[in-house]
Each structure stands twice: as C-alpha cells, then as structure tokens.
C-alpha cells in the first residue's frame, strides 16, 4: 500500500513517575482500517489512548508517534483534536451547568475554524444535530442537559459516539465503548460506528469482549499485555481469545518469543 498511514507508533515507552506502563508498543494504522485492541486489565490500553490524545502527566522515554506524518507528541491536545484525533472516553467526564448542545457546537466550530471553514450558527448546527441524532437513535433530551451530568453509563457512551458522529474525526479511538451498554444499545452504537466508517478515516477500538466485534468487524485484532502488543491477527484472533482466554495466548506468545 502506498497510502500514508494515519497513525504510526514505533517502539513507544512511556509511564508515570517511576512506573513504566508502555514498554515498546508499535502499531501502524492505514486509512479505512478498523483495528481492535484487546488485553488484560491494566495492560496499558487506556494509557495508550490518553497519550495519543495528549493527556499531560505521562513521561515518554522512547519511541515515536506520527499522525498523518506529523510528530503528534509535539502537539497540544486541542490541536490534535482539531486535526482529527477523537477519543471516546472510557469514563466520560461530567461538566455541570454546561449545556451539551452548546458544548458540542463549540467543539465543532473549533474544528471548522481550524480547517478554515465558516463557523456554524445555532440554526445550522441544530439541523446537523437532528440528522445525527437519527443515526444513533439518541434520546435528544440528553442534548438539553449538561454535559454527561447525571447520564447513565450507557447514555454517556452513546453521547460519546454522538459527538464523534458530529465531529467526524480521521482517527477515532474508542476506549471500551461497549462496556456498560445493554445488547440493544450495543447494536445501535456499533451500527452508528460502522456507518461512520470512511475510506479516509480509521478506528482503533479498545475492548475486552469479542461480542462487540460481532458488530464492529475489525480488519486487525491486537492483543496487548504488559505494555505492548504480544499478538496480532485477523478477526478470528478475537474468537480464539474468547475460547482460550488471554492467559494461553499471552503465555504461548512469550514462550514463542
């Protein structure tokens, strides 16, 4: 493939204070691809997502991360977001008193400004919202409330995907978007994510369960343990994981290594 990768992570080592969390993580993602990242609790999946999004407080000791050829580690988190990196949070944050629609409009207009597009006014934004609401069968009452405040676990996850639908990122990182969703919601959210698939964009889906991958069909599945990818494969790897458990795969891998 002669296409430029969307994301290129090479031998990334990172941690907090004296704790190493990522220990030689490498991954390349091309446009149009869906990658699933699986792994035990505490293996470093959310840390990776946070570093990609630019959260402060991590020390990067080795390795490089390129997003569309640029050194992403040099960019502010808001700049990365405006450039098209979107993180659907494992634990979305509540912002009391800030209206969800207002928040999302501010976010979209930042992206548009960055692209040199005119900002949307309230009316234009609302018609866009109406269209996207249908896509996700979102209860539009949520949009009248404060950002994530008092939302149920599942509502928060849906709201994240809704934001993604409005912002149309180039690289979407979904951190355990499936956890906390009932089976119906899972179908709706996955259908939404699938519909957001574009040939020029990519998705990195972090999950523990093969279940999600019945709905979001990944091109690649990676298994992570102790800060790096220990095994990669096609979607059948997820099935293997489900039937044999992580231990066998991780162990088998380390023996082989």
């Amino acid at each position: 493939m002669s296409k430029q990768p969307i994301l290129e992570i090479e031998n990334l080592h990172a941690g907090v204070e004296n704790k190493q969390i990522l220990k030689g993580f490498s991954l390349t993602i091309y446009p149009g691809e869906v990658h699933a990242l699986m792994g035990l609790n505490g293996s470093g999946k959310s840390t990776l997502a946070a570093i990609l999004a630019g959260r402060e407080g991590y020390e990067i000791t080795q390795g490089t991360v390129k997003y569309l050829g640029q050194d992403v580690l040099e960019m502010d988190p808001e700049e990365r977001a405006r450039e098209g990196i979107f993180l659907a949070f494992q634990y979305p944050v509540e912002i009391p008193g800030v209206n969800s629609t207002y928040f999302l409009k501010a976010a979209l207009n930042e992206v548009r400004k960055h692209k040199g597009l005119p900002e949307l006014d309230a009316m234009e934004f609302l018609s866009l919202v109406k269209e996207k609401v249908k896509l996700l069968e979102l209860n539009d009452d949520l949009l009248k409330r404060s950002v994530n405040e008092g939302f149920s676990g599942g509502e928060k996850k849906r709201a994240e995907i809704f934001q993604m639908a409005v912002l149309e990122p180039k690289l979407a990182i979904l951190d355990e978007t499936d956890s906390g969703l009932d089976i119906d919601a899972l179908k709706v959210v996955s259908a939404g994510v699938n519909r957001l698939k574009r040939p020029d964009a990519a998705q990195l889906v972090i999950t523990h369960y093969q279940r999600l991958l019945n709905y979001i069909i990944p091109d690649y599945v990676h298994v992570m343990a102790d800060g790096r990818i220990v095994k990669s494969g096609g979607k059948e790897l997820a099935l293997e994981l489900e039937s044999q458990g992580y231990e066998a795969i991780v162990k088998g891998q380390s023996v082989a290594a």
Partner: peptide, 26 residues
C-alpha cells in the same frame, strides 16, 4: 478538575475556553 479540562481539550476546546465554560456552568 484536570479531567474536565482535558475532556474539553480533547474536543478541540482550548484550556482558557474550557475554564470559562466550566466556571460559567458553575
């Protein structure tokens, strides 16, 4: 919270605007 500010940053909103937004919400 840093969490709140980071959440806003991740949506493209600058830290200053995030603080304004959070304070006005408050």
């Amino acid at each position: 919270g840093e969490d709140q500010i980071f959440y806003c940053n991740q949506r493209g909103i600058s830290t200053q605007d995030a603080v304004n937004m959070i304070v006005n919400g408050f």
